[in-house]
Simulated scan of single mutants.
Amino acid sequence: MDDRPDRRRLALATAGLCVVLVAWNNLVVPALPGRPATAVAANVAATGVLLAGARGAGLTWAELGLARRRLPAGARWGGACAALVLAAYAVALAVPALRPLLADARAEGLDGTAVAIRALVRVPLGTVVWEEVAFRGVLLALACRLLRLPAAVALSCVVFGLWHVRPTLSGLAANDLADGVVATATAVLLTVLWTTAAGLLFTWLRLRSGSLLAPVLLHLATNSLGVLAAAVATRAG
């Protein structure tokens, strides 16, 4: 039986998802009115739609990293990595010379409630769960059906890197870190490379533990604790 039509549909679905994901974070979400609340709601809805579509397309919970039997392994691996991140932030905050590395102008003027909402709601729901389901869940599972594992991992990581172009531009502008087109382009390229490498670490955790929970916990610790650390460092001057 000729399986070329199935592979063609799979290739189209994978390529289409790559385009949609890059456009979503760089074009769609930044244009939403009422951000950031609407962005969180949109990403939560997109997570549900993507999971429903993946299951409808025949991807299993195990392929998506959501099999219940793998949750303990995911908790062990993710918990250990999260503890390391917590220790790193604690050291950086304890050493005055390192605190400026954590400071972020976007944390200035935020009261305790705003910081808590960002760390406990916006980051977990609007960023971490959505990104892990999209990249280490659905995109990786689709790509693994189409490509060999190294190529599938590379694809998901590169798209994850490109996902961060617009957020990088926003961060550079808020912190006045790049002056001119060349400096900005260089900073964006370096960030894309860095987030691509981070995606590789998240993917390794996902594959090693067999559970999406592992990269979720590491991602959550990095971003949510990063918000808290930035708030403390910014206030400490």
Rank of each mutant, 00 (worst) to 15 (best):
L177E: 13
T196A: 08
V181M: 11
L205Q: 15
V182F: 10
A174G: 01
A178I: 05
W194G: 14
T184H: 02
L207W: 05
L177H: 01
L190K: 08
A174W: 09
L200H: 07
V181W: 12
G180C: 10
G180H: 04
W194N: 15
W204T: 10
A187G: 09
L201Q: 07
A198R: 09
A187E: 07
A183Q: 12
T184N: 02
L190Y: 12
T196R: 00
L205V: 07
V182P: 08
G180T: 07
W204K: 01
N175H: 02
W194H: 15
L205I: 07
A174D: 12
L193Y: 06
L200W: 15
R206P: 07
G180L: 08
G180R: 04
V181F: 14
A198I: 08
L189C: 13
T191R: 15
A178N: 09
A183N: 06
L205Y: 02
L177D: 06
G199I: 08
T191V: 15
T195L: 10
D176P: 00
L190G: 15
T186K: 10
T196F: 01
W204E: 09
T203N: 04
G199W: 05
L201S: 03
V188S: 00
D176V: 07
A197N: 02
L201C: 12
A178P: 00
A183P: 00
A187M: 09
W194M: 13
V181Q: 12
L189F: 12
A185E: 05
V192W: 13
A198Y: 08
A178R: 02
F202M: 06
A187W: 04
L205K: 04
A197V: 12
A198C: 13
T195G: 03
A198E: 13
V188W: 05
T196N: 02
A198L: 11
R208C: 00
T184C: 04
R206S: 02
R206G: 07
T186D: 15
L189E: 03
L190I: 14
A183S: 10
V182I: 07
G180A: 01
W204H: 11
L177Q: 14
T196I: 03
A174P: 00
A174C: 08
L190T: 11
L193H: 01
A174V: 05
R208D: 14
L201E: 01
T186R: 14
D179A: 13
T184F: 04
T191H: 13
T191Y: 10
L205D: 03
L207K: 06
V181H: 10
T191K: 10
T186H: 06
A185Y: 02
A174S: 13
A197Y: 04
L201A: 14
L193F: 09
A185D: 08
R206E: 03
T195R: 02
A185F: 02
V188Q: 01
T203L: 05
W204G: 14
V192T: 11
T195M: 06
L201P: 10
A178L: 00
D179K: 06
L201N: 00
